[in-house]
Design a protein around this nucleic acid. Structure first.
Lengths: 234, 234
DNA sequence: TGTATTTTTTTTGTCGACAAAGAAAACGGA
DNA sequence: TCCGTTTTCTTTGTCGACAAAAAAAATACA
């Protein structure tokens, strides 16, 4: 038994249960609290949240729609594995979306967007200062999500959100091993991005978005090749 | 009453019901057989398919995940409206994905991919010859989906599929009004794209993808401005 | 001991029922 | 007749139960 939240079986409002389960499970998956490949038991979840299987099931269907869990027909459902083979494709898409969303933000942002963006940047900065890896990862995603939202293209924004979500799991691996060296640089790069967006400097925003994305990709790539070497050395 | 399929309440295999309902509803929505904004009644669907509300509900949750239907809390669920205000953003994303997927296809396709692509092109060509608007729209999407799949980037491919799906509804409007003029040109452009992909000519594939996308966007744009003028003239 | 077959157990997919939340209709007072 | 209140009706969200599928365990047989 790893849970002791039996005390919070309080009255919930009708219809709120699904969102509750969905949000919590999503976070646990993306933070690697639920490890990829581990099984998910509907009955156990139902007991844990003090509700029937029906709303649990609905939350699982939604998560499956996002590719975060996989459901074998008639048999167990499990947390999706991280697709290491597909990582080049992932990075390609991620960098492109960094570029496109930052560029569009420079073009289409409105004054009050910057407030929200600065807010996210402040939270990211605070997480870096506090050395809180999990918070760093989440607030970094929120920052870029806010940039994307200010670009006023819902299609890019939702696609980017999905990529960032998937990326949270890989970043989690990254921060687990490297132990907080470079995040300070990301804070500075974020500041540069904000400046370029505010100045409506489209070309510079594009360049910074691309560089920022490639930066992160390179770091993760370095981690992975290091892990490969370890395998060989054993 | 518009349905008379009460005869096909045959034995289904356990677990197949959801997919059945999902696929059918999805097609009906994208073909505009279910008009945007129209209400969806769970009970009625359950009766129509001869099953309980539970699997119907699961199919609806999935469709909601793709944005094809909208669910107001505690109140009715309805087919999503086509977001005309968001169309510039949509076209922007669509053209970019035309480019990227065609480009990647030229880079990464394998020999047997071309067979599938040519198959889809043949079906599209047949639909054009038969003047079957609905089939044209669906097979056109399938063609570009096959191109994207051969590019070996699952992230782009699934995003593109979603855009193409949403686009089917707009194309449906388009073909309803214009009555089959330009489709023949699209067949030729598809052939050019296939040739560029097969020759692994990345630059040409990129150019053709972009041109093909902008072509379609321009046509739809023309339709919409014409409609605007009609409104003013009344 | 090892393998094929049957039985038990676990877990999912589906069902019918019921209560909550709105919407629509019925009602009443000015 | 109009407007606010109450009552009925419709539709959703949730529940507990049960049967189908597959896995795991038990059994039989060589």
């Amino acid at each position: 038994m790893t849970h002791d939240d039996s005390s919070q079986i309080t009255e919930r409002k009708r219809g709120s249960g699904v969102k509750l389960v969905y949000d919590l499970l999503r976070d646990e998956i993306l933070d690697l609290k639920l490890s990829p490949g581990s099984a998910i038991d509907e009955v156990q979840l139902a007991a844990r949240f003090g509700m029937s299987r029906t709303p649990i099931r609905e939350a699982l269907v939604r998560l499956a729609g996002e590719g975060l869990i996989e459901t074998l027909p008639n048999r167990s459902t499990m947390v999706s594995n991280i697709d290491f083979l597909g990582m080049p494709a992932y990075f390609d898409a991620l960098v492109l979306m960094y570029r496109v969303t930052t560029r569009l933000a420079a073009q289409h942002h409105r004054a009050d967007d910057l407030l929200l963006i600065r807010e996210q940047q402040a939270e990211f900065s605070a997480a870096v200062a506090a050395q809180d890896a999990l918070a760093m990862i989440a607030t970094n995603a929120d920052f870029h999500s806010a940039i994307a939202a200010s670009g006023r293209n819902a299609y890019y924004a939702s696609f980017f959100d999905r990529l960032l979500g998937e990326g949270r799991r890989m970043l989690r691996l990254y921060y687990q091993s490297y132990e907080d060296r470079l995040p300070a640089r990301y804070v500075d790069e974020h500041e540069e991005i904000i400046a370029a967006v505010e100045a409506r400097n489209v070309v510079e925003a594009d360049r910074l978005g691309k560089a920022h994305g490639e930066q992160i990709v390179e770091q993760i790539g370095r981690l992975l090749t290091r892990n490969d070497r370890l395998d060989i050395d054993l």
